[in-house]
Amino acid sequence: MTILEITGLNKSFGGLQAVQDVGFGVEEHRIKAVIGPNGAGKTTLFNLISGTLPLDSGSVVFRGEEIQGMEPYRIAGRGLARTYQNIKLFPGMTALENVMVGRHTRSRAGFVAGMLNLPGTRGEEKRIREKSLEFLELLEIGHLADIEAGSLAFGQQRAVEFARALAAEPAMLLLDEPAAGLNMNETAEVGRLISKIRDLGITVLLVEHDMSLVMDISDEIVVLSFGQKIAEDLPAAIQQNREVIRIYLGDENA
């Protein structure tokens, strides 16, 4: 079953057509990767899907519902979580608190309930804390729970961001360059983690530069170049695709 269906997506910044008539679908419980050279429009595509950027035209259907034009928080509320290329944790909050924010869509207490701290609210707060700890444990960073997120090592921050996204128990996860800035061991670790996430029943769409990672874990790959989709296929086929080889390695090597 298709969980995400993108059709005819367009976005330009001034004279630059960052995303041009891009369309593809993502099957449930799969890992799909979006690759392409720098400036191909991958992150812009993610921002259009998650609602961070308004799109010029096209449609994004998530779980059977058109979500284009919705505010990001509404899209998140429908089960789409994301991470960022340049990690965006909440500074001044501990790792655990960051993940607890991730439970926002799975909890309800509002201003009045918060101010009065009713028994029901206390119970919910306790469950938020327990669940969040579980997600930290899942990422094997439970021991970092009480450390301020901003003071963690880069790889650990990435893990906290993963945990925050997973804490929402999303149906689908958008990962924007999850291996950026990581060394080979850490990258392999992230690869295992992404497969684990898929096995939890979460569909993954990722943008990634690290080819070995993409080829290892992806079920399907979309290739973007200058804002256009130039290929969509299985990893093995993408590796043989002349057009893809050309844009990655240049004309002489084709």
Binding site: S50, G51, T52, E71, P72, Y73, A76, G77, A81, R82, Y84, K88, L89, F90, V101, G102, H104, T105, R164, A168
Partner: peptide, 9 residues
């Protein structure tokens, strides 16, 4: 931005 994408209005 991240707060909004995490589901906070």
């Amino acid at each position: 931005e991240a707060a909004n994408a995490t589901g906070i209005d």
